[in-house]
Design a protein around this nucleic acid. Sequence first.
DNA 1: TGTGGGGGCTCAAGCGCTTTAGTTTCGGCG
DNA 2: CGCCGAAACTAAAGCGCTTGAGCCCCCACA
Lengths: 348, 348
Amino acid sequence: MAAKRSPARRPTMKDIARRAGVSESAVSFALNGRPGVSEVTRDRVRRVAEQLGWRPSTAARALSGEGAATVGFVLARPADTLGVDSFFLQLVSGIQEVLAERHLGLLFQVVEDVTDECAVYRGWWAEHRVDGVLVADPRTADPRPGLLDELGLPAVVIGGAPDERHPGLSTVWADDAGAMASVVDGLYALGHRRIVHIAGLPGLAHTERRIRTLRAEAERRGLTGVESVTTDYSDTEGAAVTRRVLRSAAPPTALIYDNDVMAVAGVAAATELGFSVPADVSVVAWEDSALCRIVTPGLSALSRDSGEFGRTAARELLALLDGGPARTVRVPVPRLVERESTGAARER
Amino acid sequence: MAAKRSPARRPTMKDIARRAGVSESAVSFALNGRPGVSEVTRDRVRRVAEQLGWRPSTAARALSGEGAATVGFVLARPADTLGVDSFFLQLVSGIQEVLAERHLGLLFQVVEDVTDECAVYRGWWAEHRVDGVLVADPRTADPRPGLLDELGLPAVVIGGAPDERHPGLSTVWADDAGAMASVVDGLYALGHRRIVHIAGLPGLAHTERRIRTLRAEAERRGLTGVESVTTDYSDTEGAAVTRRVLRSAAPPTALIYDNDVMAVAGVAAATELGFSVPADVSVVAWEDSALCRIVTPGLSALSRDSGEFGRTAARELLALLDGGPARTVRVPVPRLVERESTGAARER
DNA sequence: TGTGGGGGCTCAAGCGCTTTAGTTTCGGCG
DNA sequence: CGCCGAAACTAAAGCGCTTGAGCCCCCACA
């Protein structure tokens, strides 16, 4: 049997009512801080509840109209792409922190793609499992905001851009465009004219935003040797692309990688080809992590506080659940942490 | 208002009953595959349910005795230690995969320490939120199994050793001892006699097991220059310990790190001190990851399938929930992937 | 002294589902 | 032809909580 010897019955409001000598309704009023009971009764009920170790049954609460006291988070990534970067765990940890204060649970699911993700939302909604969701990795043509809106499921999009706003959904985003511009600024100042951006998955909103910004910056300055190449974020693709571009006739003098893993793999690939970092080629990683600190040369990286990102998103969702209006909030622009992988462009 | 324009009412069994022209009970019987309805009615009901897009309300189910259709997983780690290794996301992803097949949700929480973790279990239990839990990072004096047993909450311990069995709890574990023994075997064969093990957090069951085994192996062979040093898994501590031991009078010729991050940091530290890897000192990382492949020299690492680990654990929990007996199952011994960081000990 | 009006509580219904105890309708057998 | 029993289905209670309606009592006011 799964349940053990003394299955330690959970106390219910009925138990409290009996012990406190009042009706169940009175207990409900007392415990939920609403009028209808005297202060003295309220105190007594509270005391009994505490001493009995009572906690409201979420199931019962959910059933009688209150929410499910749970928010959902689904990650649509092929399983093997998972866990290469530390971003998500940090994010979830931050989300968690805020939710826990309000005794909200976090229902977590990993799926293969956005289609499955939509199915999960449908299921959660129909099963009455969550009160709201956090949506990660917004795409350029994203079916999720529409669906969530249709279901009336409060949601906040993490990493979306403000123009992609969908009525009813909140958005928390980092200014990728600004960050990209400042990185290009910095590299340009160091004399770099040929820059390759080893981007992440095509179709992700932030990938496209970075690519657009890079192109715009290049045009503004009349640079021609600037391009973006999309990848799947893996170390192997990162290395492969690096090899390819460095072997070209006019190899770039600076590389911008959309995550830490590719950056490290890229440095290794460059080194193998006889390019030294940063003498021959500078490298910037978009995500900072222990990884960037550990390797030699240390990688200059765009650092952001993923935990804070998560906390902000969670707070927005709470606001939405409390009936607040949908908002768009921006978290601080990622900050470039300079290490040894960037330097002046070699004269050509 | 949180809910939007057409809050798209969820269909209930009552709706199905009406449409199918039967009672609610008949619907329940039909949908749950239990006797009491004819096959033709069952089919009709099923069809109606499907076409209405009906899904059982977990709240209602939970309330009427069924489980909450959810299992819990809490990670007790200081927030900053999170996300350094990819192990957990992989693990969770594996767990997830198995649970999803059965439409079970995964409630996830991150806390600071084991005390908080116990509080979370208490809360989940009292709130009727989960049917069972997965317990990670078992410790040497662990309050959790006792608590879970007391609450009668089905649980499987991930990474526990069989001898620490607690009645009622299942255990899924990897044979750390065997792995350690084989690593030492290998290093010994390469001529290594002074080996230092840069271990993880003291108090974790698997840390202690590895330490014990290393000591036993050393004694068996009469080696004296063998020791374990515990750390907090961070790159900084890993580097610090590496520097300390390499500066000693008789520095080790082989280092075993309990995770990938420390191993990489250790290699960097060793290189700084003028030790070349693997010529002067061999390095083995306990956890394999992209990280170990990327860096140069590539790190020899103990590789295990974390996803499979998670799947196995989840399957055990399901078995427990189905009323099966508590079991202890072993996942395959981690396999040593040889890369460039290990080699013959230099003659002394 | 009568009356209106709160405050303080209780009653009971209802949320969506399961489940036990009926009730009806057959078909089969003596 | 009548009776029994099984199969098919319905009625209703119950899970733990919320909530609107109603009840009682006491105080203030006229």
